[in-house]
Design a protein around this nucleic acid. Structure first.
Length: 391
DNA sequence: CCTCGCCCCTGATGCACTAT
DNA sequence: ATAGTGCATCAGGGGCGAGG
């Protein structure tokens, strides 16, 4: 279908946010949401606008913040990869700041859902100027050519795309639900880890493990291929994710490192250095790899402790608050030492019960994999539809 | 007054040195 | 040789001021 194309600024108001002072006097549940570029990622990942900080009109005026009407579409105007090509349609009036561009459709000509889907298809980040400071000019945004079918047809197109998008959003919510389920399963089976009302044995981690050590302290040079090299950035809560940002070292370096620190499948990796300290994940990879010293390697004694149980224990917020935080060195620098990890106190329920927990966790993981596959499928469908509608 | 371009800061990461 | 620690580096979001 070849609809007439118009410039975006003929059917909408194109604008950008003001810069905001450092501390724009936020208020809780009073006033309108306040959106920064950094929030885009969260919003497009399913976070609700109502979960954002708010600011009331008086403070907003003092900060000279711009207000944006419901139905406007926002995206990042400068910055790098993460927030670019994140298109978000506002469901209520909000304040927003610099580094965000906004498109407020004139509803007599342009449907706002249609507009937001078109911008997603168009991908404004292609307008980035080739410079050391990637940014998009308002004039370039204004001159984006948007196909303009009659309003009823715009609405129809948006509705079709909505339907696939709703599926994707539901699946995203389902993923979150499974994570919550796993957490509550832990509490259900083992009780409150702090009160320990079931009276489990309280043991030092050292006594429950075969080996506790860390990765290499002599950072080897990176290579384009070779042996996988896993560092803190690969470890997320309950997940080791090597492939999203793979790094490699030479076979020779690997052998030197591996002779001391030999991670195997089902060992627990634990971040012990830096801002993300205190995140644990079970190693799911069959392949052999080397680690950096920002990670601890914990090999559980399977007669005494199950690796999934250990991982959920280490990641549990109450546990962190009440047990692990006591072991942290100074408040400023987040870091555990091996000596302290060895001395962590950990409740050790009967191993049979722990194993039962692990089986349930694996079932939940299996469900999550299915949902992830569904998400992938609906994303593909969504992309295909986008191409079909706008090409 | 609004935009654009230019740094500036902060948090994340991990290198490299020191201590045992 | 292994473990502990300080801090360099880097990415990228955010603030600011010159210029239109």
């Amino acid at each position: 279908m070849n609809w007439e194309k118009v410039w975006l600024n003929e059917v909408s108001e194109v604008s950008a946010g003001q810069s905001a002072p450092k501390d724009p006097c936020f208020t809780i549940n009073d006033g309108l949401p306040f959106i920064r570029a950094g929030h885009l990622l969260e919003l497009t990942n399913g976070k609700d606008l109502s979960e954002l900080p708010t600011i009331n009109e008086v403070n907003a005026k003092a900060c000279r913040l711009k207000i944006l009407k419901k139905g406007s579409v926002i995206f990042a105007k400068s910055g790098m990869s993460a927030t670019l090509n994140r298109i978000y349609k506002l469901e209520e009036d909000s304040f927003y700041v610099s580094h965000l561009a906004s498109v407020t459709p004139n509803l007599n000509f342009l449907d706002s859902a249609y507009c937001s889907y078109f911008l997603f298809y168009f991908n404004p980040s292609q307008l980035i100027k080739d410079s050391a400071y990637p940014s998009i000019g308002l004039s370039d945004i204004s001159k984006i050519e948007i196909p303009l079918p009659p309003l009823p047809i715009q609405k129809q197109i948006a509705e079709i795309l909505d339907k696939t998008d709703v599926l994707r959003k539901k699946d995203l919510a389902l993923l979150k639900h499974y994570d919550a389920l796993a957490q509550s399963l832990f509490i259900d089976m083992f009780g409150d880890p702090v009160r320990n009302e079931k009276g489990w044995n309280n043991e030092e981690l050292k006594k429950l493990c075969l080996k506790i050590t860390d990765g290499t302290h002599f950072s080897p040079p990176n290579h384009l291929s070779g042996r996988p090299y896993i560092t803190a950035k690969h470890v997320r809560k309950n997940l080791v994710d090597f492939y999203s940002n793979p790094t490699f070292i030479s076979e020779e370096d690997h052998l030197g490192i591996y002779s001391r620190c030999n991670p195997k499948k089902d060992d627990v990796l634990y971040i012990k250095d830096g801002a993300t300290t205190g995140v644990a994940a079970v190693n799911n990879y069959e392949f052999e790899f080397s680690m950096l010293s920002s990670l601890a390697l914990i090999k559980p004694n399977l007669q005494l402790i199950n690796e999934q149980y250990l991982c959920y224990w280490l990641n549990n917020e109450y546990v962190k608050e009440n047990y692990i935080r006591n072991y942290m060195a100074g408040a400023a620098i987040r870091r555990f030492t091996l000596a302290k990890i060895n001395k962590f106190k950990i409740l050790a329920p009967p191993i049979a019960l722990q194993n039962q927990f692990a089986v349930q966790i694996k079932n939940i993981e299996l469900q999550k994999e299915k949902v992830k596959a569904q998400i992938k499928a609906s994303e593909n469908l969504f992309q295909a539809l986008l191409q079909k509608m706008f090409r």
